[in-house]
Amino acid sequence: MANDDTLVGELARLAHLELPPARAQVLGAQLETILGYIRGLQAVDVEGVPEYLPAEQVRSGLRDDIERADMDVDSALAGVPLAHDRLVAVPKFKD
């Protein structure tokens, strides 16, 4: 794990990505370069501009409350990395 005190370490913790120190250093530097470029956006005057909404919809996009099966459940469960009976298994954790 990277040192959580660094920005990239904190991001990796949030993103649940293992980050060996060597990789953290490279990634940290690259992120800084990219963020430096992105900060150019701070120069844009966005006063009073609304956040973008994808083009207005011509229909409600809602569906009727009707069952519509789209897969074979057992074949989906067959693809689960670790299962016990029908339950999906992970290392024990505390709720």
Binding site: I38, L41, Q42, V44, V46, V49, P50, E51, Y52
Partner: peptide
Amino acid sequence: DYYGRAMKVRSLIA
């Protein structure tokens, strides 16, 4: 500063 601002600039671009 980032996501919210970019969504506004996206409006300007559109």
